[in-house]
């Protein structure tokens, strides 16, 4: 569980996060949604410890990141997996090399043990024929799977995904969303996903936090998002005709 309490963050004169408080539950796919520039990426970077909040605190299972020693912070980082928007795979390494990288850096496993583990997680993300390929030789969807495999190879307690399905076709995006949700349940981890893809909201949003201009405007579940009267949320989520119809059908079905 990650607890965010009154987090403020600014860069120079630009106030990005203005008193965000929320809880991201363990074993759930927690979604942070909002328009571009609403502060989603800054929030996730604060959760990762890449940015220190100006005010407020973030605790990972009771450990307040800013109060930990550098060694404890490094240890906590090893419990975190991150899937970046552009995958951020090391392009000088093969797919297998990318997945083995955290193991090589932080474990004393032998090459064969690391290879077995990499093989296992690559199979888990349904990618068992690309071990020797380089990131530039595989599709965007496959790159995302490799990024997920690299993020889970160390058995993390926390998984962060920054717009994991941006740039993917709708079908691949749903596959990636479902994979993230399956992994969250299977490993019982705390997952936080930044997205502005409404398909993801409908598909995997067990808890949704809506940010607007650095303020938490709304939070709830995917069922609650259909019912909410919050104007900012409805304007954002139901901006397309398709989603307006989906909402209408949902409400009629419930009634």
């Amino acid at each position: 569980m990650i607890e965010v309490k009154n987090v403020h963050k600014s860069f120079g004169d630009a106030y990005i996060l203005k008193g965000i408080s929320t809880v991201f539950d363990k074993g759930k796919t927690n979604l942070v949604i909002g328009q571009s520039g609403s502060g989603k990426t800054v929030l996730i970077k604060c959760l990762l410890g890449l940015f220190s909040p100006d005010k407020g605190s973030i605790s990972h299972d009771g450990k307040i990141y800013s109060q930990l020693s550098p060694k404890e912070q490094r240890n906590l980082r090893q419990d975190m997996g991150m899937v970046f928007q552009g995958s951020a795979l090391f392009d000088s390494m093969t797919v297998e090399g990318n997945v083995m990288f955290p193991l090589e850096m932080f474990t004393k496993q032998s090459q064969s043990e690391m290879r077995d583990r990499a093989d296992f997680v690559l199979k888990r993300v349904n990618l068992d024929d690309a071990h020797k390929k380089y990131p530039s030789e595989i599709s965007g969807g496959m790159q995302k799977r490799v990024a997920i495999a690299r993020a889970i190879v160390m058995n993390p307690k926390y998984l962060f995904c920054d717009e994991p399905n941006s740039g993917l076709d709708p079908r691949t995006a749903i596959i990636i969303d479902n994979l993230i949700q399956e992994i969250t349940k299977e490993y019982d981890i705390t997952t936080v996903v930044n997205t502005h893809d409404m398909n993801s909201v409908m598909e995997i949003g067990e808890k949704i936090v809506f940010l607007k201009n650095g303020i938490k405007e709304w939070e709830g579940t995917k069922d609650e998002i259909f019912k909410t009267d919050n104007e900012a949320v409805t304007n954002f989520v139901y901006s397309s005709e398709l989603f307006k119809k989906v909402r209408q059908m949902y409400i009629e079905e419930r009634n």
Partner: peptide, 11 residues
């Protein structure tokens, strides 16, 4: 391409 961020996230 956020590869440096990826290194830092890993510690």
């Amino acid at each position: 391409t956020e590869q440096i961020d990826a290194l830092e996230v890993m510690g």
